[in-house]
Nucleic acid binder design. Structure first.
Length: 476
RNA sequence: UCCUUAGUAGCUCAGCUGGUUAGAGCACAUGACUGUUAAUCAUGGGGUCCCUGGUUCGAGCCCAGGCUGAGGAGCCA
């Protein structure tokens, strides 16, 4: 008999229909009521069995986590907690689950504990909701760009580029680490390595995306990215997924419009397609908030927060205006910032948090940063001291997008390479695009996991990726 | 990497300024009940108190070093 998924039974029940259900037991109550989940929805289906049509020995094996197959009839429920249920007439245990060993119980576990059980945490309501939403967001990413005529570009994961400057890199080698070949100067001889040169895992697909944008017009990447930084925070991973659109003929203002439309589209998609998962996560967050001091609680419930972002224009200010706001704030006058504020500083987390969470209380895009604190490829403004960079900051997470209009002028870019001590022979191919039919263009990078955090309300980035890669942790 | 903080039963946690045999709830087992909603009730089993060393008549508790988690910072997406 063909399996019927639980979301179909709950959404379009046909009373009296004979169905087969397969799924995992959440609870078994009163020796009669099985609450079962098959991942098709966060909701569980109640299956009612009786002593007459099942073996006692099978009922004894209906522990939380066991996998079962049940044939039965769809009925209106006699109980109060659900409108329909299935009266089971035959029960098969597909996979036992020894409760003395299975660590997941039908109770609240700490996220830290579940992180150590990453292979089993999908079985919880929280993580199944998070990963369904992660899927919807990934789909929304492709939908957004496809509808606007972008091409999905696959940039390399292994790269020989050594001038990206986006962070520490993981080295890729097939050399025998116990017997590394050395050259005459005593350095590692990468000439004998697989690619004949030193290679590493990509820290960004941006430079390659620029090359494609200067022919295909509008492209985006969406793939894994690696940073070997020893970062131990709730918003950094050593392996994460990044989305990097790059558009020919766009300037920094087009870039901001694109970034804002993109984030709104993705969050709207989740609001439209994952309501019940969002509701569950919202309830969960509100339960958590009850245990926190008032000032740490969310101002708005999760779904209202997402709607607010979708429905309201983002704030757009320049770096110079941001500095002025900080300098004129009571917070600054009362000397509550740990780091001092003056034009030219790199904004600290506390400054960004103040602007986003206290002053504006909505997403903010900051542009026009001092050239000295931003990357070499960002376009120099007319004032000669700022660049057409942009950071999008969102409440609770901080920087979710970093982007810029790129420096398309060959001479200016060569000058920037010199200033940043980047040897031209390392980026010759990048420079050549400015030599051969250069054009204004712009793009940005968005950390996918940070968007998943924002959409789900989860506070730790390790809980929105199936198998987090962080310092000292590569289990599974 | 730095600062702060924590580690006690499978899970969540209590454990008195160092003193008999380390406790509770949940989970589990057995039994009762049989329209329950994380069912309920009764009984029972369950411990390398993170590791190593030290102080002490005596250490879960004090000291030193280490390991691991969390929060924050830096770096960033």
């Amino acid at each position: 008999m063909k399996r019927t998924e639980i979301n179909h039974i709950l959404d379009q029940p046909t009373i009296g229909q004979e169905v087969n259900i397969k799924g995992w037991v959440r609870t078994f109550r009163n020796d009669q009521f099985i609450s079962v989940n098959d991942g098709s929805t966060i909701r569980n289906l109640q299956i009612v069995i009786s002593a007459e049509n099942t073996q006692e020995e099978d009922r004894k094996r209906l522990h939380t986590g066991a996998c079962i197959s049940v044939n039965g009839i769809v009925q209106e429920s006699l109980g109060k907690g659900q409108s329909v249920e299935v009266i089971g007439h035959s029960l098969e245990i597909l996979g036992e689950c020894d409760p003395n060993e299975f660590p997941i119980q039908m109770k609240k576990h700490s996220l830290e504990f579940l992180r150590e059980k990453a292979h089993l945490r999908f079985r919880t309501s929280t993580f199944s909701a998070v990963f369904r939403i992660r899927h919807h967001l990934a789909f929304a990413v492709h939908q957004f760009f496809n509808e606007r005529g972008f091409y999905y570009l696959h940039t390399p994961i292994i790269t020989g580029s050594d001038a990206e400057g986006a962070g520490e890199m993981f080295q890729v080698t097939t050399l025998d680490l116990n017997n590394v070949p050395k050259n005459e100067e005593g350095h590692i001889d990468h000439g004998q390595d697989f690619f004949g040169k030193a290679t590493n895992l990509t820290v960004s697909g941006q430079l390659e995306a620029e090359l494609a944008a200067l022919a295909l017009g509008k492209v985006y990447t969406f793939g894994p990215t690696f940073r070997a930084e020893n970062s131990n925070t709730s918003r950094h991973l050593a392996e994460f997924w990044m989305i990097e659109p790059e558009v020919a003929f766009n300037d920094i203002f087009d870039n901001m419009d694109l970034a804002e439309a993109f984030l709104k589209h993705c969050l709207k998609y989740v609001l439209d397609h994952a309501q019940e998962d969002l509701l569950f996560l919202q309830d969960r967050e509100q339960q958590e908030d009850k245990t926190k001091p008032t000032e740490e609680r969310q101002i708005m419930p999760l779904i209202d927060r997402l709607k607010f972002v979708v429905d309201n224009p983002f704030e757009r200010i320049t770096y110079t205006e941001a500095i002025d706001i900080l300098l004129n704030s009571n917070h600054y006058k009362k000397k509550k910032f740990k780091y001092d504020v003056s034009w030219g500083i790199d904004l600290q987390s506390e400054h960004e948090r103040y602007l986003v969470e206290k002053h504006f209380q909505k997403p903010v895009i900051i542009t026009g940063y001092p050239a000295a604190i931003k990357a070499f490829y960002m376009r120099l403004n007319e004032d000669g001291k700022t660049v057409a960079a942009m950071d999008m900051l969102v409440p609770g997470i901080g920087e979710i997008i970093g982007g810029s209009q790129r420096e398309e002028r060959y001479d200016v870019l060569k000058e920037k390479c010199a200033q940043f001590n980047i040897p031209e022979e390392h980026v010759w191919w990048y420079l050549e695009t400015r030599k051969f039919g250069t054009c204004p263009h712009a793009g940005f990078g968005l950390g996918f996991e940070r968007m998943v955090m924002y959409a789900t309300g989860m506070g730790n980035i390790r809980d929105v990726v199936p198998f987090p890669r962080t310092p000292l942790n590569a289990e599974f």
